[in-house]
């Protein structure tokens, strides 16, 4: 029988972190990450607060570039190309690797314009109406908003707003979708809808989701990475990847004691 690690390696890796260290100024926030993200699978990042899972997520589309003191050592490759090479344009990276945020953040524009924004800045020449319908259907939102496309994106409910943000992301036809606690601000029913959506989306996209909700990781993820925090000699908290495996292994038969304690709810 194959061990679970072999299974990861057999699937094609879309993103690959090789010995990644992340600094804020002089502070080493996340140390020594090696991690492969398999294609068309959902990978969940779990771990206690401050373990750096969101920070790593934002490295995949270079969103951390907005933070002046941010620095990354090591390599993150996307289909073999280093995302942090000098000649890589972060704007191009973000057009391939989309992001859904913790708090729904639609633009204060109409639902229609929320979807077409990404396409417009990309010089999209096709049929905008079709793009809007496709994207909203893809985000399981079309039936609810098809009669109010001219309404402000901020006028719909929080759960609908988050699906609008997902629709806006898939309108770009990205390769990877990063989700940073996408259900943290949603009620249980909206959460369920977004989770169902994630199941559908992995047919076409590679998804990484950061979540504090372990049931959610167990429900939606094929693979799970458990990040943990250790206290350094100087008394600073430093994140590291403790264990990365198939979700059922992480939840039922983890190798690390810390993982076992975390997923059974004994700390974190």
């Amino acid at each position: 029988m194959l061990s679970s690690e072999d299974t990861i390696n057999q699937t094609q890796a879309v993103l690959n972190a090789e010995n990644v260290d992340i600094y804020y100024g002089d502070f080493l926030a996340l140390k020594g990450i090696y991690m492969e993200i398999p294609k068309n699978k959902v990978t969940a990042f779990i771990g206690p607060s401050g373990c750096g899972k969101s920070t790593l997520l934002r490295c995949y589309n270079r969103l951390n570039d907005l933070i002046p003191v941010f620095k990354l050592n090591g390599k993150i490759t996307y289909h073999g190309q280093n995302l942090y090479d000098q000649d890589v344009d972060p704007v191009q990276v973000r057009r391939r690797i989309g992001m859904v945020f913790q708090k729904p953040n639609p633009f204060p524009k109409s639902i229609y314009e929320n979807i077409t924004f990404g396409a417009k800045i990309n010089g999209f020449k096709g049929d905008f109406d079709q793009l809007v319908e496709e994207s909203l259907r893809g985000a399981a939102l079309w039936e609810e908003v098809k009669d109010k496309l001219k309404q402000n994106g901020m006028s719909i409910s929080g759960g609908q707003q988050q699906r609008l943000c997902i629709a806006r992301t898939i309108a770009l036809k990205p390769d990877v979708i990063l989700m940073d606690e996408p259900c943290a601000a949603l009620d249980p029913i909206s959460t369920l809808k977004v989770e169902e959506l994630i199941h559908q989306l992995k047919e076409e996209y590679t998804i990484i989701i950061v979540t504090h909700n372990m049931q959610q990781a167990a429900r939606v993820a094929d693979y799970t990475g458990f990040f943990n925090v250790r206290v350094t000699e100087e008394g600073k908290r430093q994140g590291y990847l403790a264990e990365h495996d198939l979700t059922e292994v992480i939840f039922q038969n983890p190798k690390e004691e810390a993982t076992k304690q975390y997923v059974s709810g004994r700390f974190g």
Binding site: V91, Q92, R95, M99, F107, P108, I121, N122
Partner: peptide, 26 residues
């Protein structure tokens, strides 16, 4: 809202596109 700026940048908007198309209208 910082979230709106991040959304634009996350969709691959350059700084100018973010300022002119999102921040100024907002």
């Amino acid at each position: 809202d910082i979230g709106v700026r991040q959304a634009a940048v996350g969709l691959g908007a350059t700084r100018w596109e973010t300022i002119l198309l999102v921040i100024l209208p907002a």
